[in-house]
Design a protein around this nucleic acid. Structure first.
Lengths: 255, 255
DNA sequence: GGCGCCTCTATGTCTATACTTATCTTGCGT
DNA sequence: ACGCAAGATAAGTATAGACATAGAGGCGCC
């Protein structure tokens, strides 16, 4: 439905990229081998060098090619492939799953940052930040529990906002675009509070997502999100801008 | 050390991207607002339209801009920002952490695929695949436990390989480049086997990474990796190729 | 032989130009 | 009023040409 990258009618650069990728995957060009230079490929594919360049850059970004000036382009030996995780606001995630979204603030107050959070934010320990805890629900069932610290200094306009009413997540996304973000995943056993708020048992393994954002004024917010048990975070396709079937296209047979 | 993107001597397209990003972050151009078209920006920045295009494409990929033909470019309302996880071979991860890598195969045999794995691979249930379990160690301590299914049909040349000796992970990376990959994270409580192999207690929360790769012949391999307790998977910076000052802009005071 | 300088090459980047394509706008005809 | 077609516009893509620059390889000097 989205599109059918029909192998020949899509943009030329993508066709070239696809063909080069094919040659690598089918081992016509093997790991570590040098491939023809841009000028030659331009002739072969009857394209301008800039177009070939674009295609090869794409594959280099994917991690399939190694390119160096003067040395030429070669197939990566131990490809470090990249996958991208898309972080959208929770409400959208929930609604996209066809559930009704709701949200409850569990606690909110200004308090001094503990050492670990301070370190993460590179702020002096004990500085007063807004600390809040909230639960996001889908169809009334707990979806995520977030424990967030907000640095009002980096989020002008935040003073007058009442997070008991407004969703901090969305307010920040819409009003405090960031320059830099860090994101990490880990797992942890649910403690008493998490178990209660996520309506599960203590000790249950939870996927933890930790996220910190900065702008030019400094750290904006750091949040630790505990996902409902069994929650899955999946990444986009194997190569950038690919438009692989959204998942359900279970190719039924494989000869 | 790495580089000093001195704000003006780096590639023109990146400078433009940086400036546009700044205008968005500092809310000169607000969410939903339409920004000047490429031609105008080209004039303003004294660049060719192609250069501006490149810059804006970059920001669109980051999720900061929404671009549509004829409609122009506007600042995304609810930016869905993307982060990328880099997946390299385990040995490199371990060695990069300054530890000595080792590896032990726990089990390997051909066996019929159970239903869940079959579904994931879109293969008929019961098909004979290579099933193996292995543990990766860093400095002798368990680092990851992997449970892998390999479809020999999609990995020609694999027949003659002895995985009791060779590292499957590396063999596959080097010999079976893929066209498409799926990657997902979740958390699970360690079962008896996992607890034993990872030298932890049963019930310990583990970060689970599930990965499946495909080439044009079909599914190649699917693997479920259980990481050592506390393991953190972190993503690259908030925007592509960013190089945030690794520490000096620590605004020490915030009035 | 080893070190450093020079050269030449393949990629990196930009430009000006042109054409394509999606889609918003306008205006015409009924 | 309404629907539809024509036009205009902004992004998408490609191209030829140019210059910049990293860096591999060769040369010569000591």
């Amino acid at each position: 439905m989205t599109d059918r990258p029909a192998g020949s009618t899509s943009p030329k650069a993508l066709n070239i990229a696809r063909e080069v990728r094919r040659r690598i995957v089918e081992r016509e060009w093997r790991q570590g081998e040098r491939i023809p230079d841009e000028a030659d490929l331009a002739i072969e594919f009857d394209a301008a060098r800039a177009t070939v360049n674009k295609a090869l850059q794409l594959l280099a970004d994917e991690g399939l090619l190694d390119r160096r000036r003067r040395a030429g382009t070669r197939v990566t030996v131990n490809p470090t492939r990249k996958a991208t995780v898309s972080i959208s606001i929770v409400r959208e995630q929930v609604e996209q799953a066809g559930m009704a979204y709701s949200y409850r603030v569990v606690a909110q107050r200004r308090s001094p940052v503990p050492a670990d959070i301070a370190a993460r934010l590179a702020l002096p320990e004990g500085k007063l930040l807004v600390h809040m805890r909230a639960v996001h629900y889908g169809d009334g069932r707990p979806f995520q529990f977030e424990d967030r610290w907000i640095n009002t200094c980096s989020a002008p306009g935040l003073e007058g906002v009442d997070f008991w009413q407004l969703n901090a997540n969305e307010w920040l996304v819409q009003n405090a675009p960031y320059l830099h973000a860090e994101l990490a995943f880990t797992a942890a056993n649910a403690d008493r509070r998490e178990a209660r708020l996520l309506q599960t048992r203590q000790g249950q393994a939870l996927l933890i997502m930790q996220r910190t954002t900065w702008n030019d004024l400094g750290p904006i917010t750091t949040v630790r999100v505990a996902c409902q048990p069994g929650h899955l975070i999946s990444t986009d396709g194997g190569y950038a801008r690919s438009s692989w079937p959204r998942g359900e296209t279970r190719t039924p047979d494989t000869p």
